[in-house]
Simulated assay, not measured.
Amino acid sequence: MRERGFRLIRLLEYAGLLVVLIATLAAAGQEIALMYRQGRVTVADLLMLFIYLELLAMNGIYWRAGRLPVRMPLYIAIVAMARHLTLETPDMNAWTTLAEGGTVLLLSLAVLVVRYGHIRLPYRDEDPDNIGGRRS
């Protein structure tokens, strides 16, 4: 019974990954079509394409490894903040711009901390009977 539960959860994960993959490809296609219709490519467009690329990479890593590195969403958040700063800076006051720059700095520091922790304390392979790294 427990094995069926694990299989069902894995199947649902793959179904969700497939939905995310299709939606990401559709959104990237819409962004490319919009750039084509406008006849130009802006820095904001390129940053948006990088976000889609990171989402695709994250999806691929999850398909291959069965787990999601915490760094990937952090990278996506950094690029999203950079895109927002690129688009909205003229309309923001100095404190908001400084706060968003500080957010990018904090996210970057989080990547360093996670990366350092991964190097110094690497994951052990998990088996279904040892979820969460607990020892029997």
Rank of each mutant, 00 (worst) to 15 (best):
E126P: 00
V113I: 11
R124G: 00
Y123T: 05
T89L: 04
G117M: 06
W95N: 13
N93I: 11
L121H: 13
W95Q: 09
D127Q: 07
R120D: 05
R115K: 15
P128E: 10
N93D: 14
H118A: 12
P128M: 04
E100C: 01
D91H: 13
E126H: 01
L112A: 14
E126A: 05
D125W: 03
I131G: 04
T86G: 02
G101P: 02
D129N: 09
G101L: 08
L112Y: 13
S108H: 05
E88Q: 11
P122A: 02
T86D: 13
V113H: 02
L121W: 14
R124K: 15
E100W: 08
A99V: 07
H84S: 08
L109H: 06
H118G: 08
A94S: 12
E126C: 02
A99I: 08
T97M: 00
L112P: 07
I119D: 07
L109C: 09
V104N: 03
L105S: 10
V104D: 00
D127I: 10
R124N: 09
L87P: 02
V114C: 03
T89M: 01
P122K: 01
H84F: 14
L105Q: 05
Y123A: 11
S108V: 10
M92N: 08
G117Q: 12
V114M: 04
H118S: 13
L112F: 15
A99Y: 11
L105H: 05
D91K: 10
L85K: 02
A110V: 10
L87H: 02
T89S: 14
L98C: 11
R124H: 14
L112S: 15
L121R: 15
G117T: 06
P128Q: 00
L109K: 04
L98N: 06
T103H: 00
T103S: 12
G101C: 13
L107N: 06
W95A: 10
A99K: 12
T89E: 06
M92Q: 14
D127K: 07
S108N: 06
E126T: 08
N130T: 09
Y123P: 00
D91P: 01
H84M: 10
L107G: 07
T86E: 10
L85M: 10
R120K: 15
T97V: 14
L98M: 12
I131N: 02
A94W: 09
Y123E: 12
W95R: 06
V104S: 00
S108Q: 02
P122M: 05
L121N: 14
L107A: 07
T86R: 03
L98R: 08
P128H: 01
V111T: 12
V111F: 06
V114G: 00
V113D: 04
L105D: 05
N130S: 11
P90H: 04
M92L: 15
H84T: 12
E100A: 05
T89V: 14
D125C: 01
R115W: 15
D129A: 03
T96V: 13
G102Y: 03
M92W: 11
Y123Q: 12
H118K: 14
S108G: 14
P128N: 00
Y116Q: 10
I131W: 07
L87E: 12
V111C: 04
D129L: 03
M92F: 13
H84D: 13
